[in-house]
Design a protein around this nucleic acid. Structure first.
Lengths: 252, 252
DNA sequence: TCAAAAAGTTAGCCCCGCCTAAATTCTCGA
DNA sequence: TCGAGAATTTAGGCGGGGCTAACTTTTTGA
């Protein structure tokens, strides 16, 4: 048993305020969070890859973060965020997505250029600033790429989805989301008007993983299966009675 | 004479882009610039003081910046920015002041809380973002505290001024500027409506460095000489024909 | 004028975040 | 099942930026 003053393994700052993470630490937590939610676990090499850093560097940082209670690390096995680590990650993600929303919504940034900017600002902006931006936007629930914005206390409303590549021929679905990390993809999607909230129909599908013909409004763009796999659409067919209000916050 | 490839003693990044200064470096250059323009020179201890850092740390950093051509350092004698260093400093100052203007002008920040926020954002915002903010504000020429905003190529329009404490009894002058670094002073000035662009009259002056009575609009606040020394006003009496348009960009 | 105080610098150290090279451990296919 | 290859960790370094303690130079005032 522990001595009575050994409250918890995690060091909390005595003043109760959040410990003020460094920029690299925030980046690690965010990357690990995203890998976890995509693959269920975060491998050292994946983290290294995501952050463009040597694997050995990840091991070092991960050990430090583990001693600080942000994650659990089983050597050679992988890494898992603790509740504390997850909250810190979601805080950063909230900032990132609100910043992206503000940059497109208020300052006229094209959606393919907000990622890098938000990536830097998310470490510098105060909570106050972030909440002012959110308020100026009417408290959006999703960023310009359709990613849900976590609440201040770390709740994320993930929507059920499938990829556009999986949409059966003849079916229509509402576009939900696409990654913010690929500018040229985003520029192309903007060109064919495929953006969150837009309805898209699978017109035809060439065999052997060939190109897909879509209908978006009056146009019928043809796209590769690769691209279609990156675009998320609603899980439920929207041919039936569809929800009166789509959960999209930023109609262009 | 130099070999033909020995272009200049300063290392320039081969791609022509500015070398991407670190946050501490930007802070040093900015602090040195401000000390230089206030006192004509920057002493090690003043820099240490301004950045809340040990004097020994300043010596170290200064040596590094000197080898990189941002400043000249004569040991025991002081430090002076080169043209390159001055430009870098002004770039940061421009960002800072545009950010302050944007935060008050668009996001509703009170003027006593913009300094800290801008202090962090100035290192993270891209040029593009800064120029978008400037454009959204109609390209202001002064920040909310009346400090002139340097142009992109580092030209700063300093106005001739004296302190409010020097204003002779009976004279009226337009308030020009106050430091952005003292929140409680700024809150008090806001209370008595003493802000850049406002006309203030010296009603009376108690002897022996006593309190000063001002007239601002319909009110006659009494302030200490200490406070008055922090407030800058126009150099020329504004009782004669005054400039049709005061050079102030952000009328509240 | 000259010694004490103030200012500045050097020496030596620390932590953070990163690296490469050399182990180590895990995994998977023959 | 076992060994090659992949993944991971350890060992040893490095640069940036900071610190304290000790030393030097400059300034100052008695």
């Amino acid at each position: 048993m522990n001595a009575p003053d050994a409250v918890s393994p995690e060091e909390d700052s005595p003043d109760g305020a959040p410990p003020a993470l460094t920029e690299p630490v925030e980046d690690y937590l965010k990357a690990i969070y995203e890998l976890e939610s995509r693959f269920g676990a975060a491998a050292t090499s994946d983290v290294a890859n995501a952050l463009d850093v040597a694997p050995a560097s990840v091991t070092g940082m991960v050990r430090r973060l583990a001693t600080q209670g942000y994650l659990d690390h089983v050597p050679y096995r992988g890494v898992q965020l603790t509740a504390r680590g997850r909250l810190a990650a979601l805080r950063t993600i909230r900032r990132h997505r609100i910043l992206e929303s503000y940059l497109t919504g208020v300052l006229g940034y094209p959606w393919d250029r907000v990622h890098d900017e938000a990536e830097r600002l998310e470490h510098a902006a105060s909570d106050d600033l972030i909440e002012r931006m959110a308020a100026a936007l009417g408290h959006p629930t999703a960023d310009p790429h359709g990613a849900p914005i976590p609440t201040v206390d770390g709740i994320v409303a993930e929507q059920p989805h499938r990829t556009l590549a999986e949409l059966p021929v003849g079916e229509t679905a509402r576009m939900l989301r696409v990654s913010d990390k690929n500018p040229s993809l985003l520029r192309y999607l903007a060109e064919i008007a495929l953006q969150p909230g837009v309805e898209v129909t699978m017109v035809s599908r060439a065999p052997f993983d060939g190109p897909l013909t879509l209908r978006i409004g009056k146009n019928e763009p043809v796209v590769g299966p690769n691209l279609a796999a990156q675009v998320l659409v609603e899980a439920m067919p929207s041919t039936g009675p569809r929800p009166a209000d789509a959960p999209v916050s930023l109609p262009p």
